[in-house]
């Protein structure tokens, strides 16, 4: 792909992303939002491919387009389909957003230009990775060699994060049927259920 072509693809995809984000903000039908979220992820996966990040694009498509959409649909099935309140304007939110965005725009003026082959980030550590991937590790996919070896420890952390999420969801939602008898009661009471805080209960 020529550079101009990529530029055009970039602009088109980013514009579509912005539109779908605005639509997500305004729509009150949460199913539509879920569908748009999936579309958003697939669009960004497309953009990622255009930006040469094939591994990331793959993951984003699988996670954003797949898993998180399924999760959201599952959540909606268990909760509600519509947002009850109409979208309203929030000044504090706008101010926070303007401040944050302003800081980023301010930063862009000193950022290396887009696509600059002389960007500092390319000069420092990366050449070693490319050479090392070829010679020391012998894995053609440089992303894999960094992910699994150079920064393998990060990936260990990443697995721990996923594990945490699994434990967390099990803790919060797991085994509902068995728990119903003792948890359902407390769940509907206004907190400090006297039954659950009897001193005798813990005397053992």
């Amino acid at each position: 792909m020529g550079a101009e072509m990529i530029t055009i693809v970039n602009i088109v995809l980013l514009t579509m992303l912005c539109f779908s984000a605005v639509a997500i903000m305004l729509l009150r039908h949460l199913f539509a939002v879920a569908a748009l979220t999936g579309a958003f992820s697939l669009l960004s996966a497309g953009l990622l491919v255009a930006l040469d990040a094939v591994d990331v694009a793959f993951t984003e498509a699988a996670v954003g387009g797949g898993i998180s959409t399924v999760l959201m649909l599952g959540t909606l099935a268990l909760t509600q389909r519509r947002e009850h309140r109409p979208p309203r304007f929030s000044l504090p939110a706008l101010l926070v957003v303007i401040a944050t965005g302003g800081a980023l725009i301010y930063a862009t003026s000193d950022m290396p230009a887009y696509g600059d082959p002389n960007a500092p980030a390319l000069q420092h550590v990366v050449p070693v990775y490319i050479e090392g991937s070829r010679n020391d590790i012998g894995v053609p996919n440089i992303v894999t060699s960094i992910l699994a070896s150079y920064r393998g420890y990060d990936t260990l952390g990443e697995v721990a994060v996923i594990f945490t999420a699994g434990i967390g969801v099990m803790f919060l939602l797991g085994r509902r049927r068995e728990d119903e008898d003792d948890e359902g009661m407390v769940r509907h009471g206004p907190g400090n259920d006297p039954e659950s805080s009897e001193p005798e209960e813990t005397a053992s």
Partner: peptide
Amino acid sequence: VAAVMVTIFYAYAGRTRDV
């Protein structure tokens, strides 16, 4: 990853709907 994803799915599926 595979096990966690399926676990999460089961957890959602095991929940009764009250909508």
